[in-house]
């Protein structure tokens, strides 16, 4: 498979002695939206956080198996986590802008990675990132106001702008709309659809409608196992596995 972006093979995750993921294998294609669905505690966020090694932050968390990003192994001592994370942006459940100005929030990534040489260049990146996140028109007159002064939906788009400012190839989204109202959610979903043209997106979501609306591929997790993965249309209309069937028809979860 030539355009495979992320290739996971037999990923196990332990929190202390408790196993959270059981041999997850997955193939994620370039420039597609892949949705991870499943009931709470099924391990979908845990898997997402393996991809950019965010689980390193949790002392008791151990990851084994193999995940290859662009054919490079990332579950290894030798992986350069910093450059991995600059290649894989992440958007979190709760909007988490820094307590800095809107401009500085977006400029943070390009500055620490030394992507720019001049102020003009930095301004250009900030503006274009805000444009790509669909936020520029709303905030162009108040770039110096604190990012925390925006509304929840705007904050989440600010976080998306911040993630894409370092020019990543993959964007991980961990329930990006769960703290937002339906209108803000619709805007973000539209945005995801546009971003798909340039980025590989993996989104964890609780909302099956959202998965159906934004994704091309869907993976169903249950109790730490990957039950079924396939075209979103197929999963939602004609799943192979009865557990998937039960979940999407609302019999559990």
């Amino acid at each position: 498979m030539s355009n495979s972006k992320i290739l996971a093979n037999g990923v196990d995750v332990y929190y202390g002695s408790k196993q959270a993921l059981f041999g997850i294998s997955m193939d994620i294609k370039e420039k597609e939206v892949t949705a991870l669905i499943g009931p709470s505690g099924c391990g979908k966020s845990t898997f997402l956080r393996c991809i950019n090694r965010m689980n390193d932050l949790i002392e008791i968390c151990k990851v084994s198996g193999s995940i290859k990003v662009d054919n490079e192994e990332i579950i290894s001592e030798k992986t350069d986590v910093v450059s991995l994370r600059s290649k894989i942006g992440m958007v979190f459940q709760k909007p988490n802008p820094f307590p800095k100005s809107i401009f500085d929030n977006v400029a943070y990534g390009p500055t620490i990675h030394g992507l720019v040489d001049s102020k003009n260049e930095l301004e250009e990146i900030v503006h274009s990132s805000l444009k790509k996140a669909g936020l520029f028109d709303e905030v162009k007159d108040r770039l110096n106001e604190p990012g925390t002064s925006l509304s929840g939906g705007q904050q989440q788009r600010l976080c998306i702008a911040r993630a894409i400012a370092v020019n990543p190839e993959i964007i991980l989204m961990d329930e990006p709309c769960s703290a937002l109202d339906p209108i803000a959610t619709a805007i973000i979903e539209e945005l995801i659809d546009e971003l798909r043209l340039n980025y590989t997106i993996i989104i964890v979501t609780h909302s099956m409608q959202q998965a159906a609306r934004v994704s091309q591929k869907t993976c169903f997790f249950h109790l730490g196992e990957l039950i079924e993965t396939g075209e979103t249309n197929k999963i939602f209309t004609n799943p192979d596995n009865t557990k998937t069937q039960d979940y999407i028809t609302g019999r559990f979860g």
Partner: peptide, 21 residues
């Protein structure tokens, strides 16, 4: 913790995260 994750998620290292965020 979300601020730490945000900064590290962009690819900042620990020192940058502490100093700047």
């Amino acid at each position: 913790q979300s601020l730490r994750e945000a900064s590290l998620g962009i690819g900042a290292n620990k020192a940058e995260t502490i100093k700047k965020v």
